[in-house]
C-alpha cells in the first residue's frame, strides 16, 4: 500500500501541491489525470521521493518515505520519467542493463533483459543505439529498464510499485495498448501502478481508480465511471462535453469532436 497523507509541495516559492491525499492498494492501477500544470507530475515526483514535501507524508508498505535510503526505495518502486535524454552512446541493451544493476541480485540477468525488451515489443533491438531510436521506442526502452529494476510485482514478501509519468504519451495506438496491458498484468501479479495520464479513454479502460486534479488539489477521485462525468469535464478541463458509456465494456468515454470550449 502506498499512502499519500495530505502532502503539499512548494517549488521556488509557489504552492504547487496543496493537501493531496490518496491510497494506492497493491493489485490496482491508479491514474492521475488533470489539465496541464495541475500538479500531476509533481504528485508523482513527491511519491517517488525526489521532491521534498513542505507538509504531509508518504508511506510505502508502511515505511515512511523520508526514512528509506535511495537503494531501499529502488527495490520497492520503479519510476518511468516522461522523457529521458541520454548523453552518451549507450546501446539499448546497456540502458536496460542499468535497471538490472539497480535491482536485487538476479541469477539470470541476460534472460531478464531479453524478457523486458520483449514485453515492451522491442525484441531484437538490444544492439541498436538508444539515441538513434524514435521517441516512442526510447520511452519503451526506458520502461524495459524499469521492468528490469522491478523484475516482479511482489518481492521480499512485499508488493512493489511502478510510477509511470505519461507512459503512453508518445506511443502509437497499438503500443499504447501493449503498455497499458503490461501495467495491468503487473497489477494482477499483486503489484501497484500509479500513472499520470492524458488520454481519458485509455485511463477509463485500464485504471481502477482515477484521481482528478486541478490547480494542485484533488477535485475528484474514485472509479473512472464515477469521476468522469459531464460536470467534472467542464469544471476541471473547461470542456463542455458529454461523457458516454461504451456498452460492450461498460466504460465511460469522451469524444473530443463533441466538445465545446
Amino acid at each position: 500500500m502506498i499512502r499519500v497523507y495530505d502532502i503539499s509541495v512548494r517549488l521556488s516559492g509557489r504552492q504547487v501541491l496543496n493537501g493531496v491525499s490518496f491510497d494506492v492498494a497493491p493489485g490496482s492501477m491508479t491514474a492521475i489525470v488533470g489539465p496541464n500544470g495541475s500538479g500531476k507530475t509533481t504528485t508523482l515526483k513527491a511519491i517517488s521521493g525526489e521532491l521534498a514535501l513542505s507538509a504531509g507524508r508518504v508511506a510505502i508498505n508502511g515505511h515512511d518515505l523520508s526514512r528509506l535510503r535511495p537503494w531501499e526505495l529502488a527495490l520497492k518502486r520503479g519510476v518511468l520519467p516522461q522523457a529521458t535524454v541520454v548523453s552518451f552512446p549507450f546501446t539499448v541493451r546497456e540502458i536496460v542493463g542499468l535497471g538490472l544493476s539497480a535491482a536485487a541480485a538476479t541469477t539470470r540477468p541476460e534472460r531478464l533483459a531479453d524478457e523486458a525488451l520483449e514485453a515492451v515489443d522491442l525484441a531484437g533491438f538490444s544492439g541498436r543505439f538508444y539515441r538513434e531510436l524514435s521517441g516512442g521506442e526510447q520511452q519503451r526502452v526506458q520502461l524495459a529498464r524499469v521492468l528490469c529494476q522491478i523484475s516482479a510485482p511482489v518481492g521480499d514478501g512485499e508488493p512493489r510499485y511502478l510510477l509511470l509519468d505519461e507512459p503512453v504519451s508518445s506511443l502509437d495506438i497499438r503500443h499504447q495498448l501493449t503498455i497499458m496491458r503490461l501495467a495491468r498484468q503487473f497489477c494482477e501479479g499483486g503489484g501497484g501502478v500509479i500513472a499520470v495520464m492524458h488520454d481519458l479513454n485509455l485511463t477509463a479502460m485500464f485504471a481502477d481508480r482515477m484521481v482528478m486534479m486541478k490547480a494542485g488539489r484533488i477535485r475528484a477521485s474514485g472509479a473512472p465511471r464515477d469521476v468522469l462525468t459531464d460536470d467534472a469535464m467542464e469544471a476541471v478541463f473547461g470542456c463542455r462535453m458529454r461523457v458516454s458509456v461504451a456498452p460492450e465494456h461498460d466504460t465511460p468515454f469522451v469524444l473530443p469532436q463533441a466538445a465545446s470550449i
Binding site: S87, F88, S101, A102, Q149
Partner: peptide, 21 residues
C-alpha cells in the same frame, strides 16, 4: 562507476535507481 552510469539518465533517474546522488 555504477552511479556515473545511472546519472547519464539524469539525476532524478539515478535517484530512482537507488543512487545517493
Amino acid at each position: 562507476a555504477r552511479g556515473l552510469n545511472a546519472i547519464t539518465l539524469g539525476e532524478a533517474a539515478a535517484f530512482h535507481m537507488g543512487i545517493p546522488v
